[in-house]
Design a protein around this nucleic acid. Sequence first.
DNA 1: TCATCTCTGTGACAAATATCACTGTACACA
DNA 2: TGTGTACAGTGATATTTGTCACAGAGATGA
Lengths: 210, 210
Amino acid sequence: MNTARLKQLFPTLEEALFEELVKHGTVKEVKAGDTLLRVGQTIRSTMLVMDGIVKLYREDEEGKEFFIYHLDAGQACSLSMVCAAKHETSEVLAKALTDATILSIPLEFMDQWMGKYKTWYQFVITSYRDRFEELLKTIDAIAFSNMDERLEDYIKKQVDKLGSSLKMTHQEIATDLNSSREVISRLLKKMEAKGWLVINRNTIEWVKKD
Amino acid sequence: MNTARLKQLFPTLEEALFEELVKHGTVKEVKAGDTLLRVGQTIRSTMLVMDGIVKLYREDEEGKEFFIYHLDAGQACSLSMVCAAKHETSEVLAKALTDATILSIPLEFMDQWMGKYKTWYQFVITSYRDRFEELLKTIDAIAFSNMDERLEDYIKKQVDKLGSSLKMTHQEIATDLNSSREVISRLLKKMEAKGWLVINRNTIEWVKKD
DNA sequence: TCATCTCTGTGACAAATATCACTGTACACA
DNA sequence: TGTGTACAGTGATATTTGTCACAGAGATGA
């Protein structure tokens, strides 16, 4: 792992921290679709995303997965950065959307860095704040919008991250939105009729401009 | 304002901070129902709740208010504690549920205290974390539960804060849950039939034990 | 090439929630 | 004491979403 790359990804951090990151961090390469963190799993380390995109989910008792937001390169899973008690368990499910590179830092450094490096706790706090605002937007979507709007938002977000040609099945989208395949298929058909997208087997081509 | 009371409310903070709070904070008494912060309003100060209960809402374009969580005495509005840019505007609406006492600290002290007092940034971070988890629970409710469960949860939360006799109209509940009065009335009737509560004009008496 | 599997499309129906229209009823207060 | 107003109850109906059943299309591999 090279320091230059870290500086690029985390430009707000101070010099000494890059050395700490290099020294104590472990780089993990994961494949698209891999699970990085399960609900209930004990958190032993903080994840910084160095490359690729990670999807975060909330899960209910029956294992239904509800997509909440993406983490891009240069972002961190804020929940794993502050663990009041040791052996705290995860509230969320994290999966790699694309192949990804994760920098994993053992939890014991968190407390220490928090006191030692001003830029670290600023990073932690802005991470929290940003994720918090994403959650608020997620709440808006489910509280105030119908499925058609939510689906449009969802597709736009995916397109933002992955480009306009989405390799997903209708079932996968339905799962993320906690809906059902048939509903998604029908709504996609309507959007296709409006000329917003083109449906092919396993892929959706988003063509709407706005 | 006396330091002893502050110590009781915010036991994790250090000695020097109580003096700062006394010196720079302004105590405001507000009435039940008063609006403390509107969406889009510029945030000029941080609110610490000293007494009473504050309700936080998310608002949509048409002004519909969606209840997200309560703040009790000893808690703070985390969003107002970290303002990356100056003149940041509020993402949420805050209203006093009961008469309340608010300690208001001008924003300029935030940066300063954050660097100076370890217990302050710990307070900020745990506030954020706690609010974050509340948001996750809120998302669970709307993503995974039907209105009957959400209504039950909602009433239980209110009862927790205000006691088992709730002085609210069905319309107010409907607004908080972004539903409609008729739906809430019907669901309350069902709960009454099950013996969970007693409906009177303007009040609901929660009797269910669990 | 046939068998099988996954993905998609669609009609029919069910359930949950929203909306409309109207009624009754308790309370405040002139 | 009457009367207006806010609150609550309820039937009818619309809309949205979910579920079931089944059909067909395209990929895959023996």
